[in-house]
């Protein structure tokens, strides 16, 4: 509660936070920061930088004498550090997890860093911690995700995905379609993906994600197929059965 109050006392605009962040970065590279360095880093005119510096000084976040070097106060350094760490977490999220190009990731991070609450920041950090430390987390899921073409709208769903990145032995072995079930084999429905009218009918007949399905038999020629779900039996054409993904 106390912390929140303090934040509220010195509520900063996004651009002021950006200046603090820039100053922090500059003072890490060199011992001091000057107006023209800041103006160059942020690609703005020196005049607007000095106006902002006056505002920050009046808030007690920097020490600034005319034509002198700029230094962060303790409070200023704390605020700058907070924004910078948000910036870093968000950038790595966009870049590493969501697989965005570096410059786009930077841009998104700059826009979001000012609005991320402490709680959300905490969640992000926990997520990264989990990925790095949990031995149970699948090591290759990021690669699978990045390789999945359906994100770019190239394929309807991951189960028909022919992208090499998707083909992982274990993963592929367990997932198949109703049509590929062998006589007497059981599977659990994962995804129902066919044309809307057909899909609605499948859903009405109880072909829903999570339901167990058993392959009973096929008609001569292998089409249609005869399946059993939860105690009753249905027939489906091969192409309809191919649209329903199951896990064995």
């Amino acid at each position: 509660m106390a912390k929140k109050n303090r934040d509220q006392e010195i509520k900063l605009s996004a651009s002021l936070e950006d200046y603090l962040e820039t100053i922090l970065q500059l003072t890490r590279a060199k011992p001091v920061a000057r107006i023209k360095d800041i103006a160059r880093a942020r690609d703005v005119k020196a005049g607007s930088v000095s106006a902002a510096m006056k505002r920050l000084e009046s808030l007690g976040l920097i020490r600034y004498e005319r034509n002198e070097y700029i230094e962060l106060t303790v409070e200023g350094a704390r605020r700058a550090q907070k924004v910078l760490s948000r910036h870093l977490v968000l950038t790595s999220f966009f870049e590493e997890i969501l697989d965005m190009p570096a410059d786009e990731a930077e841009e998104e991070a700059c826009a979001m860093e000012h609005h991320l609450s402490d709680a959300a920041m905490d969640k992000f950090v926990r997520f990264f911690e989990f990925l790095r430390t949990c031995p149970g987390a699948p090591s290759n899921f990021l690669e699978l995700f990045h390789g999945c073409r359906r994100l770019d709208g190239e394929a309807e769903c991951g189960f028909h995905c022919s992208d090499p990145a998707c083909i992982d032995d274990e993963w592929q072995k367990n997932r198949t379609t109703i049509n590929a079930l062998e006589h007497g084999q059981e599977g659990t429905i994962m995804h129902v993906g066919t044309a809307p009218a057909i899909r609605q009918r499948l859903l009405d007949m109880g072909i829903l994600p999570g339901v167990k399905v058993n392959m009973e038999r096929r008609a001569p020629g292998g089409d249609p197929v005869w399946i059993r779900i939860e105690g009753y039996q249905l027939s489906l054409r091969r192409e309809e059965a191919e649209g329903v993904a199951v896990e064995v």
Binding site: T194, A195, A197, I198, R201, L202, M205, I207, P224, W226, Y232, Q233, L234, S235, L236, R237, E240
Partner: peptide, 11 residues
């Protein structure tokens, strides 16, 4: 045009 599904119950 689109064909009707052959989702049929086998009582």
């Amino acid at each position: 045009g689109e064909e009707a599904p052959f989702v049929m119950e086998l009582p």
